[in-house]
Design a protein around this nucleic acid. Structure first.
Lengths: 160, 160
DNA sequence: TTTATTTACTTGACTAATCAACTATCGACG
DNA sequence: CGTCGATAGTTGATTAGTCAAGTAAATAAA
C-alpha cells in the first residue's frame, strides 16, 4: 500500500527511505520552493532585481503614495530579511525608492516607490503573473486550494 | 463559498485580494518554507553550521566511506548551491570533511566526512528529527501525504 | 599523434546576508 | 524638567553566496 521509493528520494539519490512522512514533507517543501525560487529569480533578474528587492517594490506600490516606515516593510516581506536598510540603500541608489524622514516622529523613515520604480514593476507584472501560473500549472484548482490550506495550517502552528 | 480574506493576505497586511489561486499558492509556498527554514537554521546554527553545510555533511554520511566527487554533492543538495567548492572549503577548514584527488581520474576530487563530522551529525540527529516532526505537527498523516503528493506534482512539472 | 572538446573543478571579483553594537528620538514617570 | 526604557533605524565587521573566467585532465576527432 505504501510506496517503497519516493520521488524526492530519487531526486536526491538517497538510498535509505525517509525516517518519517514529516521528514519527507519537510524536504519536499524545501526542495520545491528552491525550484520555484530559481524560476522567479530568473524573471526579476531580467530587470536586475533580486526577488527580495522586487518584493520590497511590490510592498511599496501596495502601500500607495503615503509610503511605509522602513521596518514595517520588513514585517510584510514574504521572506523575512534582517537587512531591510541595506536592501533599501540599493533600491535608492537605483532611484527606485525615495526615503524621507518623518517629521512627526523623527525616528521613522518613510519609504516611497518612485515613478521609475512603478514603471519597472509595471513591466514585470505580466511575466511575474505568468510565472505564478506556471508554477502551479500542474495542479487542478481544487488541488491548489488544498495546497494553500495545508500550508496555512503549517504556518498557523508556527505562530503566524 | 469562497473566502474573502486569505490567511496569508492578513499575514502580509495586503489590502487587495490575490489575482489568482496560483499566486496565493506561490506566496504561501515561499512564505511557509521561509518560516521552516528559520526553524531548521536555528537547530544547525547551534553547531555552527549553515543548513547547506549540514546538508552536505548528511549527503557525505549517506555516501559512506567511498565519499563523493565534488559536483555530485551539488546535484544531491536539497537547495542547489553553485558554490559547492567554497562550501567544502569551509567544512574542510573545520576538519569535518576530507578531500582527496582521485587517482584514476585526476580531475575529480573525492570528498569524505571525517569522524569529527560524523560525531557532529550524530549530535544533531535528534534535534533535526524533532524539528521535522514539529514542522508538520499540525497536519494529520493523511494531510502530510497529500502535501507530499502535491509538491511532487509541482516539481514533476518543472523537470524534477 | 596532435588537436579539439568536454568534464571537473578552482579562483577572483563582486554582491548580498547576518549579527552585534551604536545613535537618535520618543513616551512615560517621578 | 530629567532620565529611563523602549522604538526606529544605521553602521561595521564578518561570513556567505554568485557569476564569469581560468586551469587541468580526460576523451574524442583528424
Amino acid at each position: 500500500m505504501t510506496r517503497n521509493t519516493s520521488r524526492i528520494q530519487a531526486e536526491l539519490k538517497q538510498k535509505k527511505p525517509f525516517r518519517s512522512a514529516a521528514q519527507e514533507a519537510s524536504l519536499a517543501l524545501l526542495r520545491t520552493t528552491d525550484v520555484l525560487r530559481r524560476r522567479f529569480s530568473d524573471v526579476t533578474a531580467g530587470s536586475d532585481l533580486t526577488m527580495q528587492q522586487y518584493n520590497v517594490l511590490r510592498i511599496l506600490r501596495g502601500a500607495g503614495p503615503d509610503g511605509l516606515p522602513t521596518l514595517e516593510i520588513g514585517v510584510r516581506m514574504i521572506e523575512q530579511a534582517p537587512g531591510v536598510t541595506r536592501l533599501l540603500d540599493r533600491l535608492e541608489a537605483k532611484q527606485l525608492v525615495l526615503r524621507v524622514r518623518c517629521l512627526s516622529d523623527r525616528r521613522q523613515v518613510f519609504c516611497h516607490i518612485t515613478d521609475a520604480g512603478l514603471a519597472l514593476l509595471a513591466a514585470l507584472d505580466g511575466p511575474v503573473n505568468e510565472a505564478d501560473e506556471a508554477a502551479m500549472s500542474s495542479l487542478t484548482k481544487a488541488e491548489t486550494k488544498t495546497l494553500i490550506e495545508l500550508l496555512d495550517k503549517i504556518r498557523a502552528a508556527h505562530g503566524e
